[in-house]
Design a protein around this nucleic acid. Sequence first.
DNA 1: GGGCAACAGTTGCATATGCAACAATTGTTA
DNA 2: TAACAATTGTTGCATATGCAACTGTTGCCC
Lengths: 155, 155
Amino acid sequence: MEKNKNIRENWLMRDASAISRFGFIFMGKALKEHNVSGGDHGTIMFLSKHPQVNQDFISHRTMLDKATIAKSLARLEEQGLVMREVDPNNKRAKIISLTEEGEKIVNIVEDALDTWSKQVTEGLTEQEVQKFTALAAKIARNARSLVHEGHCKCD
Amino acid sequence: MEKNKNIRENWLMRDASAISRFGFIFMGKALKEHNVSGGDHGTIMFLSKHPQVNQDFISHRTMLDKATIAKSLARLEEQGLVMREVDPNNKRAKIISLTEEGEKIVNIVEDALDTWSKQVTEGLTEQEVQKFTALAAKIARNARSLVHEGHCKCD
DNA sequence: GGGCAACAGTTGCATATGCAACAATTGTTA
DNA sequence: TAACAATTGTTGCATATGCAACTGTTGCCC
């Protein structure tokens, strides 16, 4: 059987890697003066859309390891951008929220993301962007299932 | 103006990151017994399709930093999978090629990639996969131009 | 109620990556 | 030809990430 050329050359994984890497680099530069690293912008954005959640929830939704989230939040707390309070109903868990300072950063992050999104989707129709985003979500979910089979509460 | 919800939540970058991360994890596990790390499978595949090139060429085509490629090749050379010979016509450059051992690994890498590709594109039509791959390539190129504007020979 | 399993988070370690500075070679220009 | 710029690759450092082991808490079952 003839294998798909794109698959054989592995451009799917390579391009996905490039998109995320360049995205992190871009966001890191854009948020440098606020001492927010390239990856941590995702945590901020997630918190702005999903306030008052615990770290495990963030970990599952962002598809990042709980250790990665813990360290990201520690950095952001250090910068005074998030608060971590022990859940009174479950002393194991911590309820995460953005501080006032963190809320201010959200707009800056959004602006940087808009700039990035506009630039990287140049030459694509709105419909193509929508399609791409939807397909990427599906593929990402499949990839997680493949690597972490049975370990995910969301499936 | 109302910003696009997907863009605001930054799923594009997040999902791209997830796809590549899980891909590297999967490939790392698949190639563990051959002492090939998750990222290095890309170098091997590239060399199998583009033999006898120098490191700069690999760096540009894979969109990875030249230092990253240098270290990847050092690891693969250590494993006896690639050879690095000084280009007689340009003593700065090194001509890279797979060893016999390296060529053997290629099939194993391809099989792992096929398994991965089949699994992660489950629920997508062949046409959607093609479309996704094409769009990802465009977006990745745009992203590189945005971050490394003017620094790329390929544009 | 006591013991054990599950959950939530943290920490240590290994690794891959980018950037900057560097070395060696080649090309260019005055 | 000599000096300077560009090319090619390497190394040191910083960082983000995943995994595994660990702590503390909660829930469950006998």
